[in-house]
């Protein structure tokens, strides 16, 4: 029998079943199945029951009643729109900052490694700490951001960012994109480095200015990276909990209550875990649709030469 040196030993028809990968995978498989997938299955099951948190054993099967109730629940529809608003806004800001800084760093500048590290630092900070710093900087009385905005003439008086319904979402988007842009920046930086210099030179020979070079060389060169990065950014913001929960808890007046946060609040504030599970299941379906698009794009890319 000839062995292909690039491949690991694998069972052929003559040899008995190879148990080694089974033993290697088993611990991870059992933990993930037990603590990630079993709860999901149980959550989906719960969504057909009217279970309450404190009287867990008394829950009764009510079929699709939870889902029917969702349809006429203004809090649910509010959360759907908040989720998409937050997803879109954070994606745009994170991507914008990431691309802008990637372009700045994709040049020969002195101390590039050090400056790159400075730009990555927000990503290194724990999410809760990022939230606390921004809550302090946005403080209605002594916040330094309020001070800067008043001094710059953008607002006339310090604003209560986190307690006014219209301002909580921008504040949340600000923290999120500050903390998350380095991820986008690094991916875009890697993408920029795959664009050959000759394309820029050719564009310059044709007399293209900075702006036209960006539109006709940089953006097309980043296309493959862009699609996947944008999907990841949206998916992440749909799933995000820590930041929103620590900053606003969904408030004020549900202005920042995404579907993730609504699931949590319905379960632990209102104790209705059956109903909460139904909200979570809807989010799961939304996430799966986006994920399928993601896998489809990845698969199509790896087929391309």
């Amino acid at each position: 029998m000839k062995r292909d040196p690039s491949m690991a030993p694998r069972p052929s028809r003559a040899t008995p079943f190879d148990w080694m990968p089974v033993w290697l995978i088993a611990p991870a498989g059992i933990i993930m199945a037990g603590l990630l997938f079993y709860p999901i299955v149980r959550g989906i099951t719960l969504s057909f029951f009217n279970t309450r948190l404190l009287r867990y054993s008394e829950g009764q099967f009510i079929g699709l009643a939870n889902y029917v109730a969702l349809g006429s629940d203004p809090a649910f529809w509010n959360s759907v729109s908040v989720t998409f608003t937050y997803g879109l806004a954070t994606m745009l800001c994170t991507y914008g900052l990431g691309l802008g800084f990637a372009l700045l760093l994709n040049r020969e500048i002195p101390g590039r490694g050090f400056i790159r590290t400075l730009f990555i630092m927000p990503w290194a900070i724990p999410e809760v700490v990022a939230v606390m710093i921004f809550v302090w900087m946005l403080d209605a009385q002594y916040g330094v951001i309020n001070y800067a905005l008043v001094e710059a003439g953008i607002i006339s008086a310090p604003a209560a960012w986190l307690t006014s319904a219209g301002l909580a979402m921008p504040a949340l988007v600000l923290v999120t994109s500050w903390q998350q842009f380095p991820f986008a920046m690094l991916i875009l930086l890697a993408g920029l480095q795959t664009i050959p210099d000759e394309q820029y030179e050719a564009a310059m020979m044709d007399g293209a200015g900075v702006f036209r070079r960006f539109i006709h060389v940089t953006l097309p060169g980043l296309r493959a990276v862009n699609v996947i990065l944008i999907l990841i950014l949206i998916l992440n913001s749909f799933r995000r909990v820590t930041m929103i929960y620590a900053m606003t808890g969904g408030g004020p007046a549900r202005a920042t209550e995404t579907l993730s946060i609504l699931t949590y609040n319905v379960a632990f504030q209102y104790q209705r875990i059956g109903y909460a599970a139904a909200v979570g299941a809807v989010l799961l379906v939304i996430l799966l649709c986006f994920s399928l698009a993601y896998f489809f794009l990845i698969a199509r890319r790896s087929e391309a030469p």
Partner: peptide, 14 residues
């Protein structure tokens, strides 16, 4: 791809 809150609610019970 799983939503963390949908995991955490049953996980709390478990």
């Amino acid at each position: 791809m799983l939503p963390a809150t949908l995991i955490v609610v049953p996980l709390y019970v478990i």
